[in-house]
Amino acid sequence: MSKQDRFSNDINIRNKQAGFQYELLDKYIAGIVLKGTEIKSIREGKVNLQDGYCYLNNGELFAKGINITTYAQGTHYNHEAARERKLLLKKMEIKKLEGKVEEKGLTLIPTRLFINERGYAKLEIALAKGKKVHDKRDSIKERDIKRELSRVKF
């Protein structure tokens, strides 16, 4: 396996449960402050967004619960897998999010991690509202209908 095969620039890691568990209202793209070998693990695609969430603290945005697996060829400078990571957004966007998150039932969740055309890792976060059981049933029903229609077409 060559170095070119292992490290990819077309990374697009999705949180598949986010759309099922939450109703996504608004999306933002934020930069991530990374340390050490984290970018190498991201380029290998070894990231888990399932348990991740974002929170605001003193006008700053942080992501917690995102698991970036430690880099296999790393030395004692290797990163911690499940640490908090600061997210980079403009001040106006953070103020807007602060106002919306104070509303009852709204939260910030990571939906996608990707590498942009300049080579920087970006995290797409969504302002979301938790779905109730009947909403989840509706989502399952719509998905099954789409699946049946696609089968009938072919």
Rank of each mutant, 00 (worst) to 15 (best):
T111Y: 00
N9Y: 12
K141D: 15
K3F: 07
R6S: 10
K122N: 15
I32S: 03
I109G: 05
Y77P: 00
L56H: 02
K90D: 15
K46Q: 03
I145D: 06
K95S: 11
A18I: 01
F7T: 03
T37C: 08
R85I: 12
H76I: 14
L127V: 08
N12E: 13
I39K: 12
V33Y: 05
L61G: 02
E98R: 07
L123R: 05
K90Y: 13
E38D: 09
E142A: 14
K132Y: 13
S8A: 10
K3E: 15
K46S: 08
A63D: 01
K122R: 14
E142D: 12
G19D: 10
G36D: 13
D144M: 13
A82D: 12
D10V: 07
C54S: 02
D144F: 14
T75K: 14
D26S: 06
Y71W: 07
F7G: 02
K3A: 11
Y120P: 03
K132M: 13
N15S: 04
Y55E: 13
Q4V: 13
Y22E: 02
I42T: 02
E98Y: 02
N116G: 01
S2W: 03
K104P: 01
R118K: 15
G74L: 14
Y28A: 00
A81S: 12
G45I: 10
R118A: 15
I109W: 02
Y53T: 05
G31V: 12
G19V: 03
D51L: 11
K64W: 03
R43K: 07
E102K: 14
R6H: 02
G19P: 00
R137Q: 08
I125P: 09
L49E: 07
K100M: 14
A82C: 04
G52S: 07
K16Y: 15
L113P: 05
I94G: 06
H134E: 15
K95L: 09
L106R: 13
E60T: 04
K100C: 02
I39C: 04
Y120N: 15
K95G: 04
T37Q: 10
R83T: 11
I109F: 01
A121I: 09
M1Y: 07
I109N: 01
T107P: 00
N9F: 13
C54N: 01
L34G: 05
P110I: 09
I94W: 04
Y53K: 03
N57Y: 14
Y77K: 10
V133G: 01
L149G: 00
L87C: 07
E60S: 09
K136Y: 04
R147G: 01
E93S: 09
K64N: 11
S8Q: 14
A30I: 05
F20G: 02
L61Y: 08
I29N: 13
S2T: 07
V33L: 06
K64M: 10
R151Q: 09
R14C: 08
D138Q: 09
I115R: 06
K141V: 08
G45R: 08
G19N: 08
H76N: 11
T69D: 09
E93A: 05
